[in-house]
Structure formats: C-alpha cells, structure tokens
Design a protein around this nucleic acid. Sequence first.
DNA 1: CTTTACACTTGCAAATCGCAAGTAAATATA
DNA 2: TATATTTACTTGCGATTTGCAAGTGTAAAG
Lengths: 135, 135
Amino acid sequence: MKEPKQRSACPISTSLDVLGDKWTLLILRDMVFAGKSTYGQFLQSAEKIATNVLADRLAVLESQGILTKEVAADKKSKFTYRLTEKGLDIVPIIVSHILWGARHYTTDIDPGLLDELRTGKDAAVEKYQQLARNA
Amino acid sequence: MKEPKQRSACPISTSLDVLGDKWTLLILRDMVFAGKSTYGQFLQSAEKIATNVLADRLAVLESQGILTKEVAADKKSKFTYRLTEKGLDIVPIIVSHILWGARHYTTDIDPGLLDELRTGKDAAVEKYQQLARNA
DNA sequence: CTTTACACTTGCAAATCGCAAGTAAATATA
DNA sequence: TATATTTACTTGCGATTTGCAAGTGTAAAG
C-alpha cells in the first residue's frame, strides 16, 4: 500500500526512493537529535509539516522497517515511534546533511555540536545512535 | 526565479531545501561516479529523468553555485556542467546514501567500490572529489 | 457527562511530475 | 548549398503530490 517503487538497482537511487523528499529526514532528525517520538511532537517542529504528509511518511517509514509504532506506556490513545537498527543506520546520512548545510548556508546549529561532528564524526554518529536506542 | 526557499534555520532542513528530492543527487552521482557532464548524458541514466525536470534541477544547481555551466570545448551547441567546490562537498552525502542503500536493499553496486567505501570512507571521498575536479 | 488531548482522515485548490511533442541553434551530410 | 541530425531545451496537459483547513474517532480528564 505504501511501498515506494524501486526505479533502478543503484543504491543511491534506492535510498532516494525511500528517503528522497523534503520531510522524511526531518522526522528522523527529530527522533535522533531532539528525542521526539510522537505524532504531536513531530508536528511542532519549525518547518510545519502538514498532518497528512506526516501520517503518510510515518506509514512509509514503518512499512520500510525504519521505525516501529507502538502504543505509549502512559496513554492508550498515544503512539510511540522508535527507530530500528535500519533506521539508526540513517544517522550518517543526516550528519552529512548537517555538515554540508552548516558549511554552505547560514543556520542556527549549536557550535558545540558542529565541532563534535567535524572533529570526530564516526564517534559522534555512534554516540547519537546509542542515545536514540535508549530513548 | 529558481531559488528554493529556506523553511527554517536548521542545517538539515536547509540542505533538504536544495537537495531533498528524488533526482538532484542522481545528477550529482552521474557527475562524480560516472564522469558525466552534459544534458544528454544525464538523460541516459537508468532512472529516466524527464527532460523538463532535468532542466529545472540543473538551473537550481547552477543558481546555488553547486555546478557551473559553460559552452563545451568542441561544440558550441553543447554545454559542459562541472561541480564547484560546494558541489564536491556533497560527495559525503552521496556516499552515505550508497552505504545505506547497499546495506539494506538489493542493488547492483560494484563490490570493489563498496568495499573501498566501507573500509576507507574518508580517503574514498577525497579520491572521487579529486577525480571529479580533473574531469 | 462534557471537555480536552491525541492521532489521524478528508476535501479541495495549488504546485509539481511524467510523458509526448515541439522549438531553436549549431553541426554534419548529400 | 540544401537538408538532415545533434544537442539542449520548452511547452502542453493529465496525473500525482502537496499544503491548508476542517472534521472524525478514541481515550483520558474534569
């Protein structure tokens, strides 16, 4: 129902079939770097994703095994989204976007984080993956 | 005329404002890993980009200073597109997509290239940037 | 028993995409 | 010199996707 079709056998093309739009990586950013895990939290981000687009992207990400959806511990009317290992493997893609964006455009990135990513990228990737695992 | 608008001051969001679609990174892939440099060559790729979409993306990439467009040395009816340093800085993004796509989906990537990227990512990035500079 | 919180779904206009065809300038061929 | 071809687009149009506003449904709170 929500499966993106594979345009070619190229790994870049295949990645883009799933992640190649303006919203998907922002949802994953919110999970990894802001600790967000619910629909309502994703809606509050600065970029103002539309509700139907958010619902659609979450469904695709779930169908692709990038995140899991389960009823929240506290409320039964709430869902908690968590990254799978396949989802955590996307962190390097996110980090590469951060570095390029921060280098070539004016942004409000925390200088401490930027320095951390620049000087020890691999260690930082592992750190944020581990943080997301325990979130 | 072709400037994408910045949705927020987040560097990831800003990167996606420019690169976040299903085609842009494929054009850059063709330049870096296939040595392509003309409109006609980009059209021949396996994913079959539409002519109007290709023209639009090339205009955006040029307006963003990611590539330059100049009349070809041999023919005046032909243009040569070349990556700028800002464009070459996108290679790590492309490589991260390759690694994720190749890990989680079935693709036709050359095993030698994959191994090169896995075992010495930074060196490989620099190698392909240098190759593109001399193309 | 009504209100609020939360997670969506629906309807619709606007923007974008995909496909086929057409245009225009430079070059090659007869 | 006339015609055909190459190369790089542009145009038109139906189909898909997006963005925005409003509505629906269920669980918890008051």
